[in-house]
């Protein structure tokens, strides 16, 4: 478990960081994923740039009626920030963050690093196994031990995306601001995450699931004002009670009219696809109706549309339905 040798610098300005970044020089957030990957010999950058010493992007600011969240915020600071913790519309994000990892990991991990973490698949994390996702020939989970693997999106890789906050943010309609040598660009999370393909590959063999370029830094997460008028919930099902990755998770963001009609709906799923997944069929099933038991039944059927279980993970289909019902029932108690 000795890490390979590398050089290290504390960043002082974003310009100097993006000028230095490339396939051999990586940004370091909290290190909770990157250091573990280096210990396993699965990543071996020659240089690391510590982003935590940058002066900006450590807090929450208002923006366009919504929120701008600095990507260098730790998960612990994010959940405790009054602007986030006291906003009913962001309940799902707070739940997702506090359901993530452990207290120690949340004081270390940054939001940006969380959105960019690599898969937790046991084949992928095993240095002895040359799986497709890290440049090998095939996905061993497809015909192997796939109890924790995906239901949606198909191959070539069946490892689910491990982030909880990403799922909540996708349902909130969030975007990310990326900073590179040529300037900034802002992308909706729907466009930031892409299923892994043969063509998109890093020099070390890794197939990414975001369009982030090697010389770009994720600097901010933008939550639109439209989310502010809605209500949100996050339901995560785990094997253990705490400190566990999602088997499945569901994030819901609903705008209800005064008459209780669903005026807008976004539903996102975790643990079931290589990327945080938009459940558009469930959104359509909810739209325009009220949250009657029948409507919830229809949404629960719709949320599993298109799922294709592997040999050992069909249980996740039932879990998805249950998690969506649980989320929607938060608003039908009265």
């Amino acid at each position: 478990m000795t890490i390979h040798r590398f050089a290290h610098a504390d960043a002082a300005s974003l310009q100097e960081v993006v000028a230095a970044l490339d396939e051999t020089c990586l940004p370091l957030g909290g290190g909770t994923d990157l250091v573990a990957m280096m210990k396993a010999g699965l990543m071996a950058p020659e240089r690391l740039v510590n982003l935590k010493t940058l002066p900006d992007h450590h807090g929450v600011r208002p923006g366009d009626g919504g929120w701008r969240i600095g990507a260098l915020m730790t998960l612990a600071d994010l959940a405790a920030d009054p602007a986030v913790a006291e906003a009913p519309a962001l309940a799902s994000l707070v739940e997702a963050v506090l359901d993530s990892a452990s207290p120690q990991l949340r004081t270390m991990a940054t939001l940006g690093g969380n959105l960019l973490q690599r898969p937790r698949c046991w084949y992928f994390r095993n240095p002895e196994v040359p799986c497709w996702r890290k440049g090998g020939r095939r996905c061993f989970a497809f015909r192997g031990e796939n109890k924790y693997h995906t239901l949606l999106g198909g191959g070539p890789c069946y490892a689910p995306h491990p982030s909880d906050p990403a799922v909540a943010l996708l349902a909130l309609g969030a975007a990310v601001r990326l900073s590179g040598p040529a300037g900034d660009r802002t992308l909706a999370l729907d466009d930031f995450y892409v299923t892994p393909t043969r063509d998109a590959q890093r020099a070390d063999g890794y197939h990414p699931v975001t369009v982030l370029a090697p010389d770009e830094v994720l600097v901010e997460v933008l939550i639109p004002g439209s989310a502010a008028n809605a209500r949100s919930a996050y339901v995560k099902l785990m094997e253990r009670g705490v400190w566990d990755f999602a088997l499945v998770s569901v994030a819901v963001n609903l705008a209800l009219s005064d008459a209780g009609q669903v005026a807008a709906a976004r539903v996102a799923l975790g643990g079931v696809a290589a990327v945080p997944w938009r459940a558009t069929e469930a959104e359509e099933a909810l739209l325009g109706g009220s949250l009657t038991p029948e409507a919830i039944d229809r949404a629960a059927e719709a949320v599993v549309a298109g799922t294709r279980p592997l040999e050992h993970n069909a249980y996740k289909v039932d879990q998805l339905k249950a998690a969506l019902r649980q989320a929607l029932r938060r608003w039908t108690a009265d």
């Binding site: 290190g31 573990a36 120690q104």
Partner: peptide, 27 residues
């Protein structure tokens, strides 16, 4: 574990707990 999965290496950094196994000394 050396991988942030057990907590045996917990220390306090500036008042907050952290896992020493995933923290670089240089930081």
């Amino acid at each position: 574990c050396g991988q942030g999965q057990c907590g045996a290496c917990t220390v306090i950094l500036d008042g907050e707990t952290a896992y020493a196994c995933l923290t670089l000394a240089i930081e």
